[in-house]
Amino acid sequence: MREEDWSEAWKTYYKPIDVSNTLRIVPSWEPVSATDHEKTIIELDPGMAFGTGTHETTLLCLQALETLIQPGDRVIDVGTGSGILSIAAVKLGARHVQAFDLDPVAVKVAKENIERNQTAESTEVTERDLLAETASTEKADVVVANLLSDIVIRMVPSVQNHLKQNGHLLVSGIISSKKAEVIHVLSLHGFTVIDVHEMKDWVAIHAQRMSEV
């Protein structure tokens, strides 16, 4: 199909999604119902970027962020895609979010969705790679990365440059067969696994930075 046709045709099948009892994703072209106002709403048009909220990896991250984010947290979202996790973090109480993506299309889409959700004042979206960056001047309380297992494994050694001591790392996009390998790499680099969330064949791992390595 032509790209422009596909980018519109899929919208027929994208409907509101209940992430939990308190968090709901509503496509930007769908009306927000009266009952929606009782929940935290994320209005989203993913366009050509990853992150509709329907995939298990994104759902696992959103559900984990609901219990993980504390008021006033600084958050880094690696591979932000549609911006869905950055938006959720702010709506759940984060004070500031840095959202990174290497794809200029994702950066554009994320900025549009962040504006749509009125979270732009608390969110900085940048086309860049966390792996290539030097230490952040102000480290994050939470780093979230919904990527792929191999990229997560490569990223882990550099996370300490960007995450506070005792800060939290949430990684997803991990297929079940890679779970043990990711956990092993985390342990090698000073992280303690706090929780493992699983849905179908996908895994999200919540770990805490306990020591310098």
Rank of each mutant, 00 (worst) to 15 (best):
D129C: 13
D129T: 08
D129K: 13
D129Q: 12
L130P: 11
L130F: 04
L130G: 01
L130W: 01
L131M: 11
A132Y: 09
A132P: 11
E133V: 09
E133H: 06
T134V: 06
T134N: 15
T134C: 11
T134G: 14
T134F: 10
T134S: 15
A135C: 15
A135H: 12
A135D: 15
A135S: 15
A135W: 10
S136W: 08
S136V: 02
T137M: 09
E138Q: 15
E138H: 11
E138V: 11
E138F: 04
E138N: 12
K139F: 00
K139I: 01
K139C: 04
K139E: 14
A140Q: 09
A140P: 11
A140Y: 05
A140H: 05
D141K: 09
D141F: 04
D141R: 05
D141Y: 04
V142K: 05
V142D: 10
V144K: 00
V144A: 00
A145P: 12
N146T: 04
N146S: 07
N146A: 06
N146V: 04
L148D: 11
L148T: 08
L148K: 09
L148Q: 13
S149M: 05
S149A: 15
S149Q: 04
S149F: 02
S149H: 05
S149L: 02
D150Y: 01
D150A: 13
D150E: 15
I151G: 02
I151S: 07
V152E: 09
V152R: 00
V152C: 06
V152L: 07
V152I: 13
V152H: 01
I153M: 14
I153Q: 13
I153W: 02
I153N: 05
I153V: 13
R154S: 13
R154H: 08
R154L: 14
R154I: 00
R154W: 04
M155S: 04
M155P: 11
M155T: 06
M155C: 07
V156C: 01
V156M: 03
V156Q: 00
P157A: 03
S158L: 12
S158Q: 15
S158C: 14
V159G: 03
V159R: 04
V159W: 06
Q160C: 07
Q160N: 06
N161V: 01
N161Y: 12
N161I: 00
N161C: 10
H162I: 10
H162P: 10
H162N: 09
H162K: 07
L163W: 00
K164P: 10
K164N: 14
K164M: 13
Q165T: 10
Q165W: 10
N166V: 00
N166P: 04
N166H: 12
N166T: 04
G167R: 06
G167I: 03
G167F: 08
G167M: 11
H168Q: 14
H168S: 13
H168R: 13
H168V: 12
H168G: 02
L169M: 06
L169Y: 03
L169V: 03
L169S: 00
L169T: 00
L170W: 02
L170Q: 04
L170N: 06
V171C: 06
V171I: 08
V171Q: 01
S172M: 08
S172I: 01
S172P: 12
S172Q: 08
G173Y: 03
G173R: 00
G173Q: 05
G173C: 04
I174G: 05
I174W: 05
I174Q: 09
I175P: 09
I175R: 12
I175K: 13
S176R: 15
S176H: 14
S177T: 12
S177K: 10
S177Q: 15
S177V: 11
